[in-house]
Amino acid sequence: MRARWGGLCGLAGLLASAWVAGCAARMEDNESLTIFAAASLAEVFQAVGEAHRQANPAAEIVFNFAASDQLAQQLLAGSPADLFASADQVQMQIAVDAGLVDVALRRVFARNRMVIVVPSDNPAAIASLADLARPGVRLVLAAPEVPAGHYARLILARASADAAYGPGFEPAVLANVRSLEENVRAVLAKVVLGEADAGIVYLTDALTTGRGEAFAIEIPSGLNAVTEYWIAPLSGGTHPEQAEEFLVTLLSAEGQSILARYGFEPVGP
């Protein structure tokens, strides 16, 4: 009997402490600026957030990093946020069309380009874009609705229109696709783990890998997609002034130089 009470007390204690710990973590949310940002912005936005906090010590920022299409759907479903940073115009337009973003307030804050990543030992001996069409290559792309997947397909379509690759290029490459991941970092993870022979990710993603984890192979610039990152304050946001302050930091010389440091192409202050 005593053991049973002891067990119950233990369980109650465990639940109570889990609740308290959860509350402590939540305490920040009410006063914080909530930023929904594309998965590929994870490191650079943390850095910009740090710079912003140094200039504005009172600022609290909470990030939600995920594929831009997932973020758009969360916003459509009513998830509260103050800023939305999307990796392509399509997902930002979805937010505009839903009335969540004022079309006049959205702007491009950085650019990027795609590269092919291969594992450190390059098991399929990929040396160029053309090699992706070779039968048997285990290719992983992001799902078509994810900006990275959308850009990858754009590149393949452009290559197929180019005489050097021929119209058979795109179907041959797509036939090699083994998985359509839900965000670009999952693509990178599969490559770094050696599960895939190759993936198409942002240059900046390839730069986040540790030394020797993976290698990047350039895509000819004529075929490459110039990816645009858009950011906009959300009409339903509860911290409009803080959102504007963050945007100022992001678009300032310091913010743009942080972007450049992580491999993004700044748009200039």
């Binding site: 799902a143 696709v177 083994r178 998985s179 991941e181 839900e182």
Partner: peptide
């Protein structure tokens, strides 16, 4: 297993 229509 990943995500691919028809396979996984």
């Amino acid at each position: 297993a990943g995500n691919f229509p028809g396979r996984t």
